[in-house]
Amino acid sequence: MTPTLHIKDLHVAVEGKPILKGLSLSVNKGEIHAIMGPNGSGKSTLANALMGNPKYEITSGQVLFHGEDISEWAADERGRKGLFLAFQYPTAIPGVSVANFLRMALQARRKAAGDEKPLPPKEFRKLMKEKMALLRVDDSFAGRYINDGFSGGEKKRAEILQMAMLRPEIAVLDETDSGLDIDALRIVSEGVNALAGPDLGVLLITHYQRILNYIKPQFVHVLVDGRIVKSGGSELAHELEAHGYDGIREASAA
């Protein structure tokens, strides 16, 4: 079976400097993978390169989505195809409301799926309300400008809200747990869990094991210096918790 997302021997450079040095990984719908790694291991580079940030240059290797090489695609094409990135540092867009933004994004996604007609306003509002309730955000959220003046927790909730609305096939969560207090972490995690299922594959990128108390991955990978040095089940996260990245580094170097 062709994996939904297939990363093959990926090399990525930022401003000429190699960061990812041959990363391979497959993520299927219905699976939750966690990638754990210390600072500077290439976690955010992976997230950005997968989404097609032009600042991140794929120097060799491939990213396949349903078997199709999307390495050269622009970010919007990837987004429409069903790839999603929950940003570590979401950008503010002053003057553009969350609702308007999502309406446009949803329409672009539907259009790509062959449905020219936008979602009727009534249905859109209903969907928004439902998803906002899931993320426990106030109704006023829809009218606020995207990430403009949002607290750290609101930003992360807004990311998951977008994911809930756009229903991607593969979602990359880039350190979604960073900067969250325990309550916000729980809400965000519950949101992700509610969305997880046979139609969604999740690639959870994190530094800390903490979020894995709430979101249970079937697969855990350890990223060190641009490569996956170890893969395993959820028990690997606990091993990391006990021995730290140094322990893994030593083990993998041996």
Binding site: M51, P54, D76, G79, P90, V96, M104, L166
Partner: peptide, 30 residues
């Protein structure tokens, strides 16, 4: 218009010219 803003909007499936138009519309929204 920041590259970051464009990338963010585009990652949600919005084409580049529409994304830029959104940033401009937002700019004059007040």
């Amino acid at each position: 218009i920041g590259d970051e803003q464009l990338f963010y909007l585009m990652s949600r499936g919005i084409p580049e010219d529409e994304a830029a138009a959104m940033v401009v519309s937002g700019f004059i929204e007040p």
